[in-house]
């Protein structure tokens, strides 16, 4: 087998998977963080409890994603992170604020709790916005022109909407009664802006990147892409129906909204992968050009092949331990 060919492809896939898992998992943490100011004080504790045992591990997926970029594609890693210096720095500060606020609010003197709640929300919002900015910069092929910035801004406001939806969907799974109703309301409010933004981004993408436009609108290769927008639209319609009908969500199948959103994210990721691959920096560098030596990749491959299934297995184990509706967190 031709390792020089397959290993970079494997790691590109692993990186995409890690970042997808990150968006789906930490997305709900960040969304709940952004929603925190809109809840009553008593509800805030439950919302925090809904993410308490998970957020730390969820956040680790972005470390893995960036880690793979660094391990497998060191040539691209430096260029990408240098070009994204400002949004990356902002995101890191957001992540720092979110993470410390989570722990400080539980231990701080009572009158400081409001301050930590605010920091938690602001940190989550900064993180979400800068991740959108990063994604935008990435899709434009690290473009520095005015149009590129505009496009990045567009995605920067889209991503928080997606995270808010994920957060609301997670709250449906983890909460009951009034907070459940509130979460449904938040989901209903955010789904249309999210859908509109997603559509806008999809329309803008081929305009911003010639490489992507060539792939989408070439015949007949472009047809292979067709199932993705069709399925996305069907999924989106399904989500709209779930939220307007509400009966399904209220009859013990509240996980459907979160599942539907995961499907939407998977489809978006597939579309993105189709548009980008085999480049790692769009229009500039392919995954093979930027890959580490095959020997180094192989060394990491074996570790990944053994450890990643174990990680997924114990992640499931821990999610099962904490399954069911969230109750107030105790260290008991």
């Amino acid at each position: 087998m031709d390792l020089d060919f397959w290993l970079p492809l494997f790691f590109a896939g692993a990186m995409g998977l890690a970042l997808l898992i990150y968006v789906v998992l930490d997305g709900y943490d960040l969304g709940i963080g952004i929603l925190l100011p809109f809840a009553e004080d008593s509800e805030k504790d439950i919302m925090i409890a809904a993410i308490g045992p998970f957020w730390d591990a969820n956040e680790t997926w972005i470390v893995l994603g960036i880690g793979i970029l660094l391990i497998a594609f060191p040539q691209a890693h430096g260029q990408i992170l240098t070009a994204m210096y400002i949004p990356v720095t902002l995101m890191l500060m957001g992540l720092i604020l979110r993470g410390i606020a989570f722990d400080f609010r539980a231990k701080a003197i009572a009158h400081r709790k409001d301050m930590w709640n605010a920091i938690f929300a602001i940190g989550s919002l900064i993180t979400a916005v800068s991740q959108g900015w990063m994604l935008g910069t990435y899709i434009t092929g690290l473009g520095q022109s005015g149009i590129s910035y505009l496009f990045s801004v567009l995605i920067a406001v889209t991503l928080p909407a997606l995270y808010i939806l994920l957060g609301s969907a997670w709250l449906l799974i983890k909460t009951e009664d009034e907070l459940f109703d509130k979460a449904l309301g938040w989901a209903k409010k955010s789904i249309l802006p999210m859908g509109a933004a997603l559509l806008l981004v999809s329309l803008a993408t081929p305009l911003i990147s010639e490489t992507i436009a060539d792939k989408w609108f070439s015949f007949p290769e472009g047809l292979r892409l067709l199932p993705i927008p069709l399925l996305s639209m069907a999924t989106f319609a399904g989500l709209l129906w779930l939220l307007s009908d509400q009966k399904t969500l209220r009859s013990g199948r509240e996980w459907l909204l979160y599942a539907g959103l995961i499907l939407l994210c998977v489809l978006a990721a597939l579309g993105l992968a189709y548009s980008i691959l085999p480049d790692i920096i769009i229009g500039q560098m392919t995954i093979w050009e930027s890959a580490s030596s095959t020997k180094s990749l192989l060394f990491t491959f074996w570790g990944t092949a053994i450890v990643l299934p174990a990680i997924i297995a114990y992640t499931f184990f821990v999610y099962r331990i904490f399954s069911g509706k969230a109750t107030a967190l105790t260290y008991e």
């Binding site: 308490g52 045992p53 730390d56 591990a57 680790t60 990680i311 992640t315 821990v318 904490f322």
Partner: peptide, 10 residues
């Protein structure tokens, strides 16, 4: 990170 959740809250 994963088992910290169990350690703290489980």
């Amino acid at each position: 990170a994963t088992f910290l959740g169990v350690m703290l809250f489980g």
